[in-house]
Amino acid sequence: MLVVKNLTKKFKDTIAVNNLSFTIKPGKIFGLLGPNGAGKTTTLRTVLNIIKPTSGTISFDGKSISDEYYNMIGYLPEERGLYQRSKVIDILAYFASLKNLSKSDALFKADEWLKKLNVSRYRNKKIIELSKGNQQKIQLIAAIVHNPRLLILDEPFTGFDPINQQEVKELILTFTSEGKTIILSTHQMELAEKMCENILLMNKGSEVKSGKLSEIKRIFGGNNVKVEFSGERKLIDGMPEVLKFDSYNNYSEIHLKDEVSPSKFLKQIIQKVDVKHFSVIEPTLNKIFIDLINENN
């Protein structure tokens, strides 16, 4: 379990991270979200022990950061790049041995992962000869080859095509069943929405919102329904229960007043138009993100 308490990091006069606290349980994916410059990278770097916090504590499984900690972390930085002129297997073996794996273990694990991600044929190639997507895969393997217990992934999906994205997503999900603690920092809200159980949304160094994603969605849900119908639009648009009516080609999104329950609303409109589809829409994480950050700014 990773516990970050009252983390603050100042650079000269600017406060990059201001009194941030969060806890991540093993087997869970924690989404660290926020606009550019929100302080995510600084937060990740302090968790990685690359930079020291100005104040606050970070502990993993009850122990504060020590040299042992280095061997438990796996890190995939946002901007990618490996030693362009070195061989795939050499790089993987190097990173694994930096995490204290023996040479034979390092080679064995590296080969295992190359196979798992379908890139074994590049084993003895130089990085520069690989496509961008394959380079990304190698970098991902470099982050996980030593079987880390705490995995920090900064934008893990960029640069992958949809098929590889799916592959990587599934891989990360298998890590949760192995009990790894995972921090995922991304701008791809749909993916964060599908993968993270808890999120922390930050802006200008401070927390804007944090907690269980489902909970946040419920609170921010508003009262929206999606309706497909044939009949006159103004029959619904003019109803007192309706706050906002957005019409699209095949369906309409209706924002109801808070006190109106969707099922009662359905009963009412059935009598007015021919309803083909009716569902309650949860707000997307994307929408929550945009609304919260705009509000915060």
Partner: peptide, 17 residues
């Protein structure tokens, strides 16, 4: 310079002091 420009340095300093 290479390590800094491709951020490999971050992986390195998260593996050793």
């Amino acid at each position: 310079l290479e390590e800094r420009s491709n951020r490999l340095i971050e992986v390195l300093v998260s593996s050793s002091t």
